[in-house]
Simulated assay, not measured.
Amino acid sequence: MKFSYRLAYYLGGLLLGIVFVVFFLQAKADARDVSFCYFPNCRVLQDLRKKSFEISPKADSIFQQKWVNLEDVKKCMEFGDVDFAKSNKPVKGGKIYFIEGKNTKGEPITVTMINYENKVVLTDIKKD
């Protein structure tokens, strides 16, 4: 077979493959429940965000001090870093997680949460 025919077959197959890949990736990207979250930090934060959220009385008293608010905690649950050295230990029927982030003033904070099977309880917030 001549080189020009082989090149034409190769380019035709490559073009067909690209069309299929773009079609399937576009369909996957359009799905609303699909997210690309494969790293442990991302998976833990995603699991915490999906569940119902409760605030303990201790955390509520910290909110009354006005140096941190619920928006800061939500940002930590989205962009924070989970400290796996201290986290993922069984506590009170759930697992405890320490999430490091920042408040609106840029100060580093650590948010402590207990992850139960069907809910997440915010237990403590500390300034670092």
Rank of each mutant, 00 (worst) to 15 (best):
I96W: 00
N103C: 06
V82Y: 01
K127E: 05
T123N: 07
Y5N: 14
G101L: 06
S87W: 03
L16T: 06
M1K: 13
G93D: 06
V120W: 00
K119Q: 08
V82Q: 02
M1E: 06
V19T: 13
I62K: 11
N88G: 09
V111N: 06
Q64M: 12
L7F: 05
L25H: 07
V68T: 07
V91S: 10
F39G: 12
D60S: 15
R32F: 00
V91Y: 07
C37Q: 01
I109P: 03
A27E: 11
K66D: 05
V82M: 04
G93S: 02
I62F: 01
L11R: 15
I55N: 03
F79S: 13
A85H: 13
F20Y: 10
S56E: 03
I62A: 03
F63Q: 07
K58F: 09
D33Y: 00
S4N: 12
F23V: 10
K2W: 05
L48G: 02
A29S: 08
V22P: 09
F84P: 13
F53I: 04
Q46D: 05
K50V: 08
S52P: 11
K127G: 06
E71H: 14
D81Y: 13
F84D: 09
V21Q: 03
I55F: 04
I114M: 04
V91K: 15
E100A: 12
E71V: 15
G12R: 10
R43Q: 11
E117K: 15
Y9V: 14
L70V: 15
S35E: 03
G94R: 08
D83R: 13
L122E: 02
V91Q: 10
N69P: 12
L70Y: 09
S52N: 14
E71C: 10
N41I: 02
D60P: 14
S87P: 11
I55L: 15
A85R: 15
W67R: 11
D33L: 00
K95F: 07
L45C: 08
T123E: 05
G12T: 12
K119T: 06
R43V: 01
V120H: 04
K74G: 05
C37Y: 00
D72K: 09
D72E: 03
F53M: 11
L48A: 02
K86F: 09
E107I: 10
Q46W: 00
L14P: 09
A8P: 08
K119M: 07
G101K: 09
N41V: 02
L48R: 10
V120C: 07
K126D: 11
F63T: 05
D124V: 06
R49N: 08
F36L: 09
R49Y: 00
K86M: 14
K74Y: 11
Q26C: 06
V121A: 10
T112P: 02
F36M: 03
I125C: 02
A59S: 13
G13W: 02
I62W: 01
V121D: 02
M1H: 12
K28V: 01
L7G: 08
L15P: 10
T123R: 11
V111M: 08
V19H: 07
E117A: 15
S52I: 11
L48F: 01
L14S: 13
K2T: 12
